[in-house]
C-alpha cells in the first residue's frame, strides 16, 4: 500500500530573497523519474518539511507548465519550521509531499469567463500559479484583472514577473494599506494607498467575470461584499482558504471547516459551498 505520509526528498535549485521575510525556493525531486511525471494543478499545495521540524502546507506558486522540470514555493518566515527553511541554501535538501488538495477551477467550467483575481498579503501566493497559467494566452482572449493589496512596497511579491504579465494582457493593480507608496509605479504597475476594497471604487472592475480570492478572513468579508454589490453571484466567487493542514488526507481534522476539509476538498472552494462556515 502506498504510504501517504512518506515525504520525498527534493533539492533546492535556487533561493530568492523575494521580500525581507519571504524567500522563493525552486525545488526538484531527487528522483528524476518522479520529477518527469510530476504534475500539479494551479492552487494545489505541498507539505514541505525538514526532519525534526515537521511539515507545513505551502502553495505551489510556479507555473504548472514547468512542473516536470521544477516547482516553486514561496515561504514567509512566521514560525519555527519556516525559520529553519529560511536557513537553507541552493543544493540543500528538504522533504515534500505534493501535490495535495483541489486547486482553482479550470476556466472551462466557469460560467463567467473573465477573471477578477484578488489577493491580500501573502494570499497573493495562492494566485501566482493561476496568473502564470492565464498569462499563457487566456488573458488575450478574456479580460483578466488582478487586485493585489499588501502592507507596503517592501512586501511586494513577484515584481520581476509584472512586465510579462502585462504583456500577456493581465491588468494588475497594487495597493498598500500600511505605508503610502514612494513611487507611482512598480515595474510599470500603478500603486495606490488604502484598503484593497478601495480599488473597487477607483478602478473599472471587470464584468461577466468569476472572482478568485485569497487573503486574510477580514479581506474575504469586505471583498465579497463589494463583489456582491457588483452583481457577482456566490457561485461565481472562489476562495483559497488557509488552515492548519497536517495529514493532507482529510483525516486528522486540523483543517476541518463545517462538513469539509481544506486539505482535501480545498484549499479552493466555491463561496456558496463554504459561506456558512467562514
Amino acid at each position: 500500500m502506498i504510504n501517504p505520509y512518506q515525504p520525498l526528498p527534493v533539492k533546492i535549485l535556487s533561493v530568492i530573497q523575494e521580500t525581507p521575510d519571504t524567500k522563493i525556493f525552486r525545488l526538484k525531486f531527487l528522483d528524476s523519474v518522479k520529477q518527469k511525471q510530476f504534475y500539479f494543478w494551479q492552487g494545489q499545495f505541498a507539505q514541505v518539511g525538514l526532519p525534526g521540524q515537521g511539515e507545513a502546507p505551502f502553495d505551489i506558486s510556479s507555473n504548472s507548465h514547468d512542473s516536470t522540470a521544477y516547482f516553486e514555493v514561496a515561504i514567509r518566515q512566521v514560525g519555527r519550521l519556516t525559520q529553519a527553511l529560511h536557513h537553507l541554501h541552493k543544493g540543500d535538501r528538504l522533504y515534500v509531499r505534493a501535490p495535495l488538495g483541489k486547486g482553482w477551477p479550470s476556466t472551462d467550467v466557469l460560467s463567467q469567463k473573465n477573471l477578477l483575481l484578488v489577493g491580500g498579503g501573502c494570499g497573493f501566493l495562492a494566485l501566482k500559479s493561476v496568473i502564470e497559467e492565464v498569462s499563457l494566452g487566456y488573458a488575450k482572449k478574456h479580460q483578466v484583472q488582478v487586485f493585489y493589496g499588501c502592507s507596503d512596497e517592501a512586501q511586494v511579491l513577484f515584481k520581476e514577473r509584472y512586465q510579462d504579465w502585462q504583456k500577456s494582457g493581465i491588468k494588475l493593480k497594487l495597493i498598500f494599506d500600511k505605508k503610502e507608496p514612494t513611487k507611482k509605479y512598480i515595474q510599470g504597475i500603478s500603486c495606490g494607498y488604502g484598503l484593497i476594497t478601495k480599488l473597487f471604487e477607483t478602478e473599472k472592475v471587470v464584468t461577466h467575470a468569476s472572482a478568485f480570492l485569497c487573503g486574510p478572513p477580514v479581506m474575504f468579508k469586505f471583498v465579497i461584499k463589494k463583489l456582491q454589490e457588483r452583481g457577482f453571484k456566490d457561485s461565481e466567487i472562489y476562495l483559497s482558504l488557509e488552515r492548519r493542514m497536517s495529514c493532507g488526507l482529510g483525516v486528522c481534522q486540523h483543517c476541518a471547516i463545517g462538513d469539509k476539509y481544506v486539505c482535501k476538498d480545498g484549499p479552493v472552494f466555491r463561496y456558496d459551498e463554504v459561506k456558512d462556515y467562514l
Binding site: Y5, P51, G52, Q53, G54, E55, S246, C247, V251, C252, Q253, H254
Partner: peptide, 16 residues
C-alpha cells in the same frame, strides 16, 4: 481519531 504528527529528535535520528 484526530491526531497530531510530531517530530521527536533522538541523538542521531528523528522520529516522526
Amino acid at each position: 481519531f484526530c491526531f497530531d504528527t510530531e517530530d521527536q529528535a533522538q541523538e542521531k535520528t528523528v522520529s516522526r
